[in-house]
Amino acid sequence: MKVRIDGEETTALEGQTVAGVLLGRGLTSWRTTRGSGRPRGVFCGIGVCFDCLVVVNGVADVRACQRLVRDGDDIRVQHGAELPS
């Protein structure tokens, strides 16, 4: 499968989560907090903490640890709160 991560095309495997793909590429954070702009990535890994939020296909607030990648997904860093584009 091909997915885009912040504009860069990469391959992903069926059954990988977005977090799995991002961590596999050596990233540890892909979101900044609304208040102080601090970086966040996976914390709980099982869908509870909402720290790993990411923008997928223009829609923000997707939990990277819960979302399985689909072919052609466009994955972007989430800066604070974002509206759908």
Partner: peptide
């Protein structure tokens, strides 16, 4: 998880996260 200074830094995980990523994603 109990809060402690720096627990919000990327690289701090719950044990369950490490387990889920290892077993579920091979990461």
């Amino acid at each position: 998880a109990l809060p402690f200074p720096g627990w919000d830094l990327p690289g701090v995980f719950t044990a369950g996260a490490a387990q889920a990523l290892a077993k579920g994603q091979g990461v």
